[in-house]
């Protein structure tokens, strides 16, 4: 198990919160809630050791060129593939919009 922290610049205010996914095999749990103004904070607790570079690349690719909201994201990962991570994060952001 490994805990990783990432930070990205945010421009929009964070609002609402959402929870998607589950800490089951090949899946992950994503909690999104309003965070500190001007930044998007992500904490990843993952069962896969040595995966820091992969998470870094994945989040860079996901967030580059987007106007990000100032939210705090908590991820509990149980071996999700990059595709599943992307789907869950998109789902989490979309569910905030539904509130």
């Amino acid at each position: 198990m490994q805990t990783l922290n990432f930070q990205f610049p945010a421009v929009e205010p964070g609002r609402g919160r959402s929870l998607v996914g589950c800490v089951s095999s090949g899946d992950l749990e994503v909690l999104i809630e309003p965070g500190t103004a001007g930044r998007l904070d992500i904490q990843v607790v993952t069962s896969v050791n040595g995966s820091e570079a992969r998470w870094e690349q994945l989040l860079q690719r996901l967030f580059s060129g987007r106007a990000l909201p100032a939210v705090k994201i908590d991820i509990h990962d149980f071996g999700a593939t990059p595709g599943v991570v992307r789907l869950r994060l998109e789902q989490g952001f979309e569910e905030i919009g539904h509130d």
Partner: peptide, 19 residues
């Protein structure tokens, strides 16, 4: 889940907890 009442025992054993 946002109250984050999680297992204090799982992380100590290297297991990812759930919120």
């Amino acid at each position: 889940p946002f109250d984050r009442l999680m297992s204090p025992w799982l992380p100590r054993q290297g297991i990812v907890p759930q919120a």
